[in-house]
């Protein structure tokens, strides 16, 4: 079937999951096209895992629809599940099995036999750097290896859709880097949805990010678009030598909202997001006109963590119990 805006690989419409009175996921809608890597962000207990469990068909939705590759997950679960590779939270596996045994088992469950199975196991073992531990029993492995074993299981049938719940959790920085590269490569011709609470991963791997808080989507856009929501986005940071009234002059610019001294630096904030370009122009004009000695200047891109905090934090009320969400 043809992909495209009419037929996105993953389409989620008004998805709701209620655990008793608590709505862990509360009216979430989005779709993901082939070639996209969607980062799923949110504080703990925001509903990330619950949403992913509904996409993979592990949890039935209370309301709303999920379709994967055109198959409704509730109506044709087997067809939908065939397209999906899934790394659940905490990367579970059978500790009494060897890595090879476990991957073989996953391949067999995916309908791969004989030579195809062997080839698939070899391929994912290489992809996830497991070749050296293939014969080892999983319970003797370190957390990083166990994690990658479960990731390898998700890739065994070369799925069209990858759903990864915290794929870099518990990995060391090198392994994190490798997994991010893997995700980015996969995303080129597949669909990848992964959850994280590490914001740098959004820049490192995502083409788009969704921030979810208390079961609702609070932001949806490219990493650049999200960063632009930051207060600091578009601000100019300058170092000017020997001009005592520079701060006041800069603050007087029509596009400037305020000037903040940061040691030897001055940071000029734009009036609003739209004024960023105008601010840059007028600052440069001012510097040139006055012949100020400019030692450094940069335009701030905005910080995702600031955006994240601002749109997810205001939660001073007693935190709702998240135990219902975490099985």
């Amino acid at each position: 079937m043809a992909d495209g805006p009419q037929n996105p690989m993953i389409r989620i419409e008004n998805l709701v999951k209620a655990f008793g009175a608590k709505r862990a996921v509360d009216g979430v809608s989005f779709s993901v096209e082939r070639g996209e890597v969607l980062g799923f962000l949110g504080p703990n207990g925001a509903g990330k895992s619950t949403t992913m469990r509904m996409i993979t068909g592990f949890l039935p939705a209370t309301d709303g629809r999920v379709s994967v590759g055109g198959f409704d997950v509730a109506e044709s679960p087997l067809e939908a599940k065939r397209l999906i590779g899934y790394l659940p939270e905490n990367a579970p596996s059978y500790p009494d099995m060897s890595v090879r045994g476990f991957l073989s088992f996953a391949a067999e469950m995916r309908g791969l036999d004989g030579g195809a199975r062997k080839k698939a196991v070899g391929r994912v073992a290489e992809l996830c750097f497991l070749a050296s531990v293939l014969h080892q029993s999983i319970d003797t492995l370190s957390k990083g290896y166990r994690h990658r074993t479960c990731l390898a299981q998700a890739l065994i049938h070369d799925p069209e859709v990858l759903i990864l719940d915290e794929p870099t959790d518990g990995l060391d920085p090198n392994q994190k880097h490798e997994v991010r590269n893997l995700i980015r490569d996969m995303g080129k011709n597949k669909v990848v949805v992964f959850s994280t609470h590490i914001l740098e991963e959004v820049d490192a791997a995502c083409t788009r990010a969704i921030i979810i808080d208390r079961g609702r989507i609070v932001a949806n856009g490219t990493p650049a678009e999200l960063r632009a929501k930051s207060e600091i986005a578009g601000a100019m940071t300058l170092q000017i030598a020997g001009v005592p009234d520079a701060a006041a002059r800069l603050a007087a610019l029509p596009a400037a909202r305020k000037v903040e001294p940061l040691g030897a630096l001055l940071r000029v904030y734009p009036k609003d997001a739209l004024a960023a370009a105008e601010l840059a122009r007028s600052v440069i004009e001012l510097v040139n006109r006055e012949g100020w000695k400019l030692e450094s200047m940069r335009t701030e891109e905005g910080h995702l963590d600031e955006v994240f905090r601002r749109i997810t934090l205001p939660d001073t009320a007693p935190a709702p119990s998240t135990s219902a969400v975490k099985r």
């Binding site: 592990f58 067809e79 599940k81 659940p88 596996s93 500790p95 996953a106 995916r110 479960c150």
Partner: peptide, 16 residues
């Protein structure tokens, strides 16, 4: 299976 979370793996394989 429930304790270790493998239930989630098992039931998201394309099987009944």
């Amino acid at each position: 299976e429930r304790r270790s979370g493998t239930l989630e793996l098992l039931l998201t394989f394309p099987i009944n």
